[in-house]
Design a protein around this nucleic acid. Structure first.
Lengths: 115, 115
DNA sequence: CTCGTATTATACCAAGTAGCTAATTAACCG
DNA sequence: CGGTTAATTAGCTACTTGGTATAATACGAG
């Protein structure tokens, strides 16, 4: 279909999927566990579809335990993204400069948690 | 339409658009200059459409100079991506470990050029 | 084996995206 | 003004995506 980077980026281009990844950061979860926070807005098959996108991108690995499919995070594809972004590091800093020199006095930006 | 992160990720989820960004890393370019490497596979209006996606994501800023529209890179949205990825840094390292300890002996991976 | 729960697969629809060609706007140059 | 270049818009087709509902499969408990 497409190259790894494209698959990874398009998998990440959805708030639901990013939220699912954020959930998996806290540990393994079955499909229903994973789906639970979204069932108000979406049906289970909908969640499964999103999950499949993440799986194809290699961001999620599904194992088997009886009738459950415990899913866990695989951040390996994100390393390719990080590598790709490396080429833009200086441009990011440049855009920072453009935003204002005063930001430079604060040498580090505090880590934030993803919504 | 969608949140910033989603727009950014989906803008990046296309090899042509990533190549356009890579070109802009080397400096400003007009639309035709930007389009030139792709005209074998794509028409100019096609390029314009991609450019508009990048523009809406804020990754490209278009200015005016007579009948030319010089485009330049704006890496600022990428900082949001970098920030988002920060939360997965430890998982990336963990996935590295899982892939095999032998990879750790090769401390650096050779830099690649983006297609 | 049968029932209930967990999960996946199939079929379908609405909406969005990517590409094309052709036509249009905008700005320059003579 | 008329011609040329740069870039965009419009209108079309084909494909993909996100969602639904419904059916099918898999497993554990009785």
């Amino acid at each position: 279909m497409a190259d790894t980077l494209t698959r990874t980026f398009s998998a990440l281009a959805d708030p639901t999927r990013r939220a699912m990844l954020a959930r998996l950061r806290r540990g393994e979860a079955s499909v229903t566990e994973l789906a639970e926070p979204f069932l108000a807005q979406m049906t289970l098959p909908g969640v499964t579809k999103h999950l499949k996108v993440l799986e194809k991108a290699g961001l999620v690995i599904k194992t088997r335990d009886a009738q459950w499919r415990p899913c866990h995070l695989n951040a390996e594809p994100l390393r390719d993204v990080a590598e790709w972004m490396d080429a833009y590091r200086e441009h990011m800093e440049a855009s920072l400069d453009r935003l204002g020199e005063y930001l430079k006095t604060v040498t580090t930006h505090p880590p934030k948690t993803e919504p």
